[in-house]
Design a protein around this nucleic acid. Structure first.
Lengths: 262, 262
DNA sequence: TAGTGGTCTAGACCACGTG
DNA sequence: ACGTGGTCTAGACCACTAT
């Protein structure tokens, strides 16, 4: 009673690409994962840049010699990871930090009540120096490698709320000066993406409560010893390569850090 | 050039179930979303209890008169939301708080270094009383409705690290006493699930840094004014109904709150 | 060996955006 | 009218688990 396949054999047992040796299943990976890796490569190579459209599902299916459904599943996962954005009727686009509502994805600070979300950034300093051992370790730099240190204060409604201390690998951010930072409008990550070709895709944060030390307290306009939220972030690009270490101090009297567990 | 459908018509234009009126697309919802809602109903009704297996994809497909692929997509989403757990070769199971690694899903506290994750709970009190207005509002209770208040201290390696103040709707947790709490082994949410049939599926937290007030400081063994992480959580069951309001104070000197942005 | 979820395919049709 | 993603179907085969 079972009907035979229409014709045109699937040609392989399912695992042609990748996995050099002829082993059966020890290093098995589904086709759509391999396609996902190929697309990720294209993103990493800059073949498709942030904001641009990528080829349609049917075209990719043709290019990789798989069915549209397989490409679809690959793109589904990349969209779930916020690397791509699907727009029905238009196409699939490379996600970007510029026009997104990243306000809530990477700065999870919300006002207690009618407070505003618009904020402006005041640069405290931006200089190049050897990274301290701990920072170098987290950025996977050699001890002598140069680094960039940015310090800035974020103010909401003219009140300083966040002090950030940002460490970047110097080699990746050549030509980053305080003037250039000051002249750029919009989120820092958008600038990193458009000006330096580095796209943050993931971050991991360690959150603590600490007492404000004198220099920090002064910049934030609070008393020494005032309780602050300490946020240590490491951000990663493609391939889980760390490209930013950020230490933040938040004044959480009228704003709070929002997190959803699910 | 287009070949006709094999036979056996799909019978409808795509939207038979739900949406009472004959309107075309104003309230359109995909089939798999409707299936998802039906399965969620089964979970809510207790038709399949936590830890139990649900019917196989083919059986559900038959029951709902849709293809296996449609059921699969519905289950995919429920699994992504941690309501179901798929186990290849065995079946699909209702997620549970008992044997899960929920240690990391609902208590995101990690040690700085070799510290331990095992902790024990010391109950401070458990009593029934009118909920304060603010708590009642968050739990969507009427002002006169009774509530349960639990206070407890979590200790890691014999050091008190977390003080929790937990508010529950009294009607939903009849018979919850301090003795019963004390005699239960394992996570609180596991107890709520097995003893009271209430399963937490989602929570939202507001995080701040605060100065320890005297009573809190005493229970945690720190000085008054010591910076503590304040975590205000509202937990929800099926249908986004709030069923728990929890206020936690964390000592974050050797432990930190871990959060991943992606 | 049988049953379950997991992958892959091919094709039809719908909904959306644009010319 | 056309192309894009979105939904739905049907069937084949693979991988894992149990018996």
């Amino acid at each position: 009673m079972t009907s035979n396949p229409p014709s045109s054999a699937p040609a392989s047992t399912a695992n042609d690409r990748g996995e050099g040796s002829g082993a059966r299943s020890p290093t098995f990976s589904p086709l759509y994962q391999q396609i996902k890796a190929l697309i990720t490569q294209g993103l990493e190579n800059g073949e498709w840049k942030p904001g641009e459209i990528i080829p349609s599902e049917v075209e990719l299916a043709g290019r990789y010699k798989v069915s549209q459904g397989t490409v679809r599943k690959a793109i589904d996962e990349l969209a779930a990871e916020n690397l791509l954005v699907r727009r029905q009727g238009k196409g699939t686009f490379v996600a970007t930090h510029t026009e997104d509502r990243v306000q809530f994805r990477f700065l999870r600070l919300l006002p207690d009540d009618g407070g505003s979300l618009v904020h402006d950034s005041r640069l405290v300093e931006c200089r190049r120096l050897r990274a301290p051992a701990e920072i170098a370790r987290q950025l996977e730099l050699k001890p002598a490698d140069p680094a960039v240190l940015i310090r800035r204060v974020l103010a909401f409604e003219h009140a300083p709320i966040v002090l950030d201390e940002i460490w970047l690998p110097g080699g990746m951010f050549k030509g980053l000066t305080i003037e250039r930072l000051a002249s750029y409008e919009g989120p820092l990550y958008a600038m990193f993406e458009t000006e330096f070709g580095t796209r943050m895709i993931r971050a991991s944060e360690k959150i603590r409560a600490v007492a404000a030390e004198a220099p920090v307290a002064e910049l934030l306009g609070v008393e020494t010893g005032f309780p602050l939220l300490s946020v240590e972030r490491v951000s990663y690009t493609y391939g889980d390569r760390p490209v930013e270490v950020r230490r933040g101090w938040y004044v959480t009297t009228r704003y709070f850090y929002q997190n959803d567990l699910s």
